[in-house]
Amino acid sequence: MIYIDPPLWPAHGTFFSHLISDTSLEELHSFAAAAGIPRRAFDRDHYDVPRKRHADLVAAGATPVDGATLVRALIAGGLRIPARERAASLVHPLRRRWDSLVPEAADLGAELLNRWGEPHRHYHDRRHLLQVLEALHRLGCTDRPVLLAAWFHDAVYDGVPGEDEEASAVLAEELLPSAGVPAAEAAETARLVRLTASHDPAPGDEPGKLLCDADLAVLGRTPPDYDRYAADIRREYSRLDDAVFPEGRRRVLESLLTRGNGLYRTRRGEELWGSAARANLTRELAALSEGSAPAGTGCGSGAGRG
Rank of each mutant, 00 (worst) to 15 (best):
D158Q: 15
V71Q: 09
G67C: 09
G61T: 03
R121A: 11
P64S: 02
D125K: 06
R72Y: 08
P103S: 04
I81R: 14
L129P: 03
R95T: 09
R138Q: 15
A110I: 07
A183T: 15
A68P: 08
V102G: 06
R95A: 15
A172Q: 01
G162Q: 06
L176M: 00
R96F: 00
H153K: 00
R127H: 08
G140H: 03
V65S: 03
A169M: 05
P119R: 11
G77C: 09
V71G: 00
A88C: 05
E163V: 11
Y157W: 12
S178H: 13
L70I: 01
L108T: 10
E163H: 06
I81M: 14
D154E: 11
H124M: 07
G109E: 07
V160K: 12
L148V: 03
G67I: 02
V160L: 13
V170W: 04
L74F: 00
V156E: 07
R127E: 13
E185T: 02
L112P: 09
L136M: 08
V71I: 15
R86P: 00
A110H: 13
V71A: 05
E174A: 07
W98V: 06
R86Y: 00
I75T: 13
Y157E: 05
A76D: 14
A149K: 04
Y157H: 12
L171M: 12
A110M: 08
P103C: 07
V156P: 00
V102I: 13
P182I: 10
F152I: 04
A106R: 14
E173D: 05
L112K: 06
L74D: 01
V132R: 02
A167Y: 08
V160M: 06
A167K: 13
E165I: 01
A105F: 11
D154M: 11
R126E: 06
R144K: 02
A68D: 14
V181D: 04
E173I: 01
S168F: 04
L171Y: 04
P145H: 02
G159F: 00
P182N: 10
H122Q: 14
P93C: 12
S100R: 09
L94K: 09
P82F: 02
E165A: 01
S89A: 14
D154S: 13
E163Q: 10
G67K: 05
H124E: 08
G77F: 04
